[in-house]
Amino acid sequence: MRGLKEYATEYAKMAFYKPSALEREIGICPMFAGRMVAKPHYQTIPRTYSYYILQFVLDGQMMFRAGGEPVYLDKGDMFCLFPEKTVQYGVIPEKPQLQLIWFGLEGEGVGSLLQSVGIKEERPYARRACSHGIPGMLHQLLDEFLLLKSGSTSYYRWISKLYEVFDQLVIARPPGAANSREKNSYAWIKESETFMSMHYNEDISVQDVADYVGIHRSHFTVAFTKLLGISPGQYLLRLRMTNGARLLEETDFSITEIALSLGYSDIFAFTRAFSNYYRMPPSVYRSNRRIEQEQAGPLRSDAPMPG
Rank of each mutant, 00 (worst) to 15 (best):
Q55S: 14
S160F: 11
P46K: 13
T48H: 06
D266H: 11
S131W: 07
V284G: 00
L105D: 01
E144M: 11
V87C: 11
Q168N: 13
G68R: 11
L239V: 03
Q115F: 06
L142R: 05
G118K: 02
N179F: 14
G109D: 13
Q99V: 10
Q55P: 04
G34Q: 10
A178N: 10
L237V: 03
L105T: 02
Y7T: 12
F79R: 05
R173G: 06
A245Q: 08
D77V: 03
G111N: 15
A273M: 04
I204A: 01
G60I: 08
A66M: 12
A178R: 14
L236E: 00
R240T: 02
Y49N: 12
G233W: 01
S160L: 06
Y186V: 11
N288Y: 08
V284M: 05
L169S: 03
L299C: 04
R181F: 07
E202M: 04
E69S: 09
M14K: 15
A126P: 00
P19K: 12
N184K: 09
V206R: 00
A223I: 11
Y278W: 12
E84D: 13
Y11K: 13
E23Q: 15
A210T: 00
A269R: 09
T9S: 15
L73A: 10
E294H: 09
L105K: 04
L113P: 03
Y7V: 14
Y264W: 02
Y200E: 00
P298S: 01
K226I: 01
Y278Q: 05
K183I: 09
E122W: 07
H139E: 15
P306E: 15
S112A: 11
R2V: 08
Q43T: 10
M1H: 14
R128K: 14
H132Y: 06
M280K: 11
F103K: 10
P93V: 07
G68C: 11
Q168K: 12
D302K: 05
I215F: 02
P124I: 09
S150G: 05
G107Q: 06
M31K: 08
L81K: 14
Y89G: 03
L239N: 01
L81P: 07
Y264C: 01
M198W: 04
Y11H: 15
A187E: 12
L148R: 00
E69F: 13
I53A: 13
P83W: 10
Y49V: 11
F268N: 04
E292P: 08
L299Q: 03
H139Q: 13
N276W: 00
R290K: 12
A245L: 09
A177L: 07
Y200C: 02
K75R: 14
R24A: 15
V57R: 01
P124M: 13
V117E: 00
F103E: 09
G104Y: 12
G263S: 02
Y163K: 10
I189L: 10
A66E: 15
G27L: 07
K13P: 03
G307N: 08
D266P: 05
F145Y: 08
A223V: 14
R128N: 13
P83F: 14
Y200D: 02
R289N: 08
Q295H: 12
H199R: 07
A126F: 10
V222D: 07
G233E: 06
I189Y: 02
L105N: 02
A12S: 15
E122F: 09
P83V: 10
P298R: 01
P124T: 10
L169C: 09
A178V: 14
